[in-house]
């Protein structure tokens, strides 16, 4: 392999590695702002490294974002792990699972306050998924597992 090609590939993949390693804290106020663009469909999945049904469905969310990466769809994965676990659990998990969608950790005073802010109907169990499309007035919380087909249906219906 020519050196130039190698450098080119390295340069191309560099932002990718950076993106994978990044998990930023996100408050509810920041989240609300983050999902406010009226032309975008937001699918916000609340998960945790210790939640097995969450871990199982995460690849489907990631796949949806990959499939529609050039469309007005934004998949946000918000970890509900306790904030002190960011470096010891969440970042290593995101790295080892090679997640490409935007990953955050919920920055909160307490779980109860955030859960009520997200949606009054959320029981508090994980996983939970919030679908928001400001232009269409869509704001709906789902407490269920999603297959890729179901997520695709959510996208098609709410885009």
């Amino acid at each position: 392999m020519k050196l130039k090609t190698l450098i080119f590939i390295l340069l191309l993949t560099l932002p990718l590695f950076k993106a994978i390693a990044q998990v930023r804290p996100l408050t509810y106020t920041e989240l609300k702002k983050r999902i406010s663009n009226p032309d975008t469909l937001y699918i916000v999945n609340f998960w945790a490294t210790w939640c097995s049904p969450c871990v199982k469905e995460l690849p489907n969310f990631d796949q949806l974002q990959r499939t529609y990466k050039d469309r007005p769809l934004k998949v946000l994965l918000v970890s509900m792990d306790i904030q002190s676990k960011l470096k010891t659990a969440v970042v290593p998990f995101v790295k080892s699972h090679k997640i490409l969608a935007s990953v955050y950790i919920a920055s909160r005073n307490n779980d109860q306050e955030l859960i009520d802010e997200i949606d009054k109907n959320w029981s508090g169990a994980l996983p939970a998924t919030l679908v928001v499309n400001a232009k269409k007035g869509v704001h709906r919380l789902y407490e269920k597992d999603f297959t890729y087909t179901e997520l695709n249906a959510i996208y098609q219906t709410n885009k």
Partner: peptide, 9 residues
């Protein structure tokens, strides 16, 4: 009442 955060049943 409050929200019970945790692992789904």
């Amino acid at each position: 009442g409050s929200k019970a955060f945790g692992c789904r049943i």
